[in-house]
Design a protein around this nucleic acid. Sequence first.
DNA 1: TTGTATGCGTTATCAT
DNA 2: ATGATAACGCATACAA
Lengths: 352, 352
Amino acid sequence: MPSRPTPFPSAASLQATSTATIEDVARMADVSIATVSRAIHTPEKVATSTRQRVNQAIAITGYTTNAMARSLRMGRSNMILVLAPDIGDPNFSSILVGLENEARAHGYGVLIGHTQNDPERGLDYLKFLNSNQAAGLLLFTGHAPFGHQMMTERLPPTVGLFEPVFNGRVSYVGVDDLAGARKAAEHLLSAGHRRIAFIGESRTKLGHQRRLKGFELALDAARIPASDRMVLEGDGTIESGRLALEQIFMRGDAPTAFMCVNDATAIGVVNGLSARGYELPRDMSVIGFDDIPQATYVHPPLTTVRQPRSAIGRQAMALLLQSLDAPPEPPREILIMPDLIVRGSVTGPQRR
Amino acid sequence: MPSRPTPFPSAASLQATSTATIEDVARMADVSIATVSRAIHTPEKVATSTRQRVNQAIAITGYTTNAMARSLRMGRSNMILVLAPDIGDPNFSSILVGLENEARAHGYGVLIGHTQNDPERGLDYLKFLNSNQAAGLLLFTGHAPFGHQMMTERLPPTVGLFEPVFNGRVSYVGVDDLAGARKAAEHLLSAGHRRIAFIGESRTKLGHQRRLKGFELALDAARIPASDRMVLEGDGTIESGRLALEQIFMRGDAPTAFMCVNDATAIGVVNGLSARGYELPRDMSVIGFDDIPQATYVHPPLTTVRQPRSAIGRQAMALLLQSLDAPPEPPREILIMPDLIVRGSVTGPQRR
DNA sequence: TTGTATGCGTTATCAT
DNA sequence: ATGATAACGCATACAA
């Protein structure tokens, strides 16, 4: 019995090879690999009939462009690397969604690198970048990745987001810290508070500095004397809120309201206050910043300033994607105005 | 004035080129690229003196292997892809640290893909895998990535972790759900409870099913009649805890204790109970599972079963790295025994 | 011990 | 409209 001819020249050989390459497709469609490549990237330059044959072959083989080869050839990948020190940051998740949506819309994929603020890991990702495995870099870290100078020089287009980047001249997308903090302080002021404590890390964190500035501007405008203001150090963790509270009570001159640099700090303060027997918000007002999910589950629920997380993600990615072709010079800074979210942790000061 | 000879043949040309390649190193060390490659990967096969020249050249140029080219050539990368549906999962962060430590120790890097349970995104990452951009796959998702069948067939070595993988025959590393749940139930029992409600999603989630089984085994052993057991549906979100609670009260026969499939559910129950004016744990006991950070910040702090997160991460990566050379057949399942964490949400039942 | 040459899967240039 | 081929950067079989 004569062997039945297969519809395509090399149908048999296909099963042997693991992943279909452009060559498999070419053979099956009976064209050159150049034509296959064209059919994919510039379909209008290919005759309709051949294009159809190629597409059919692609469908049958399940061919997907080998991104490694493509990037090697092109000197640029279509992946964006996001570097984050702490994946667990409650802000990170929804910013990421914004980033990814925007990236997808432009044909880019998103990869996340977890640095844990460890220079070693930073170096690893630097190497990753160095071999063009990502076309652009998004810094959620507040600083450029650490590593050999040689490598930091050759960084791809980069934009920082959420936390201002203190080293490296890069574009930045984030909340308008100053304006947001000012809104928060004004909310406290208009509730009648005059003795207010601010808790934050003003020395190294740029974002915290800006929030402190907004706080001070608002109090200046309300002509609150310096003697009625307290500024306490706190690195932005829940624990730092508790600690700052201890200091306040050690010094003995409690304020009527706390303005915390972020919600984590505020949660620490709320917990500490409750533990000391204060009833909130009757005895003391607390306001936060960020509006993380946990802000709702504390008692009383936190009045706070909401980070426009999704917008930050979207705009940061948009800016980066633009920068891929021509990095803006000088770097741009996009500040998004946040909204005040009024919940239950602020009322007027108690009569004393 | 005669031009001063440069110490190396092509020192000048280096500045022009963007990133140093193996060829730059070869020229500078005055050897062939093959020798450079060998000096890096099999140093013992290279004369000491040449090796030194090569190393020096590498140091000067800041050369790093182009991972794209290397992987293309070798047909395998040194990156591991972790697929997670929700980066914000409070369990994810510390598992990740375990994964990364183990990976680093073996010279592998970790990349995270955020699928959001979206098949489109899954397909993207499938393409990523398909071109050998990752040597192995870790599934935090509870299921294999969705995509064209053609591509799912060609998956690299894979292991699931944290949540049993319901499609795809893959190895798995996670907590011993059954034993952990049994411990929790026994804790409730030994506190004196006999009317206990279980809240969880027993239909589609394998892990939930196992926890329910552990619950039932413990109650069987204590000879609790079926009439004293309640099993309520809840998908594991905070909201699902509240909802299940509603159902209980609608039916009117409240238990004395709640065993929740996870902490999120338990937090929903605790909140709901507090909102209804119950004082915990005096009026009602609640036990969770996972020991997420938030378990500490609810009142009363949650008694729960702790996920061995770091161990899960470490062992899953170790298993995957082994599987790279020879995938175990049949797939292995590593179950880690969890500890009961006693806090304040469980006491004896109220006298009625 | 070292060098030459080939191929990994693409894209792009130049012919035809 | 299509095909042949070079080059991307590297690892390695084979020669020397």
